[in-house]
């Protein structure tokens, strides 16, 4: 058996192990179907992040950080933001920043709506990594002030474009 500080009881660990995959799957579903159903990058990203937070709560920090370390979180966080900007820059292919340059396809198909799914994936990546990063920073290190706020801002940068496209 494990030491006392390594996570919670066996019951929690077993249930957590069972539920975790479904939580992640549901989060990814919400991200991928963001342009068709309620949801999108931000809610899906939050769900994915809660999955990892559950992992950390039930199994303790050592195992969770081995699966998804804080360095990886900050890297993915920045990559997500960059991916979003790249999608925006690719709009210059059609002549405009943020232009939806891919063929929109038929409505209600999974592969439709042009760049929207791509930006949703980027935002989902960003939000899940940064929320997990905030949790790690606040709960464990208690010191990473700069880490904590940087993530918040990145999302603020990612989201307006999201709302802008919903507006359009």
């Amino acid at each position: 058996m494990t030491e006392p500080d390594e996570g919670m009881t066996l019951i929690v660990k077993t249930i957590g192990r069972l539920v975790l995959n479904f939580i992640l799957l549901f989060g990814i579903y919400i991200i991928l179907y963001g342009h068709l159903t309620p949801g999108g990058g931000f809610p899906g990203g939050v769900i994915v992040a809660t999955g990892f937070i559950l992992l950390m709560l039930s199994f303790g920090r050592r195992i969770a950080l081995k699966k998804f370390g804080d360095l990886a979180a900050s890297l993915l966080d920045n990559l997500g933001a960059l991916a979003f900007l790249i999608v925006a820059f690719l709009g210059f292919v059609g002549g405009y920043f943020f232009l939806n340059f891919i063929d929109r396809g038929t409505p209600f198909d999974l592969f439709s709506a042009g760049t929207l799914p791509l930006s949703n994936i980027a935002i989902g990546l960003k939000v899940s990594a940064s929320l997990y990063g905030v949790f790690v920073a606040l709960a464990i290190f208690g010191k990473a002030i700069v880490g904590g706020d940087r993530t918040g801002k990145g999302k603020a940068e990612g989201e307006p474009a999201n709302s802008q496209e919903q507006k359009g």
């Binding site: 905030v134 920073a137 990473a144 002030i145 904590g148 706020d149 993530t151 918040g152 999302k155 989201e159």
Partner: peptide
Amino acid sequence: IGLGTIALMVA
């Protein structure tokens, strides 16, 4: 945005 601000406040 509020989430970002709150995270910074708590930190």
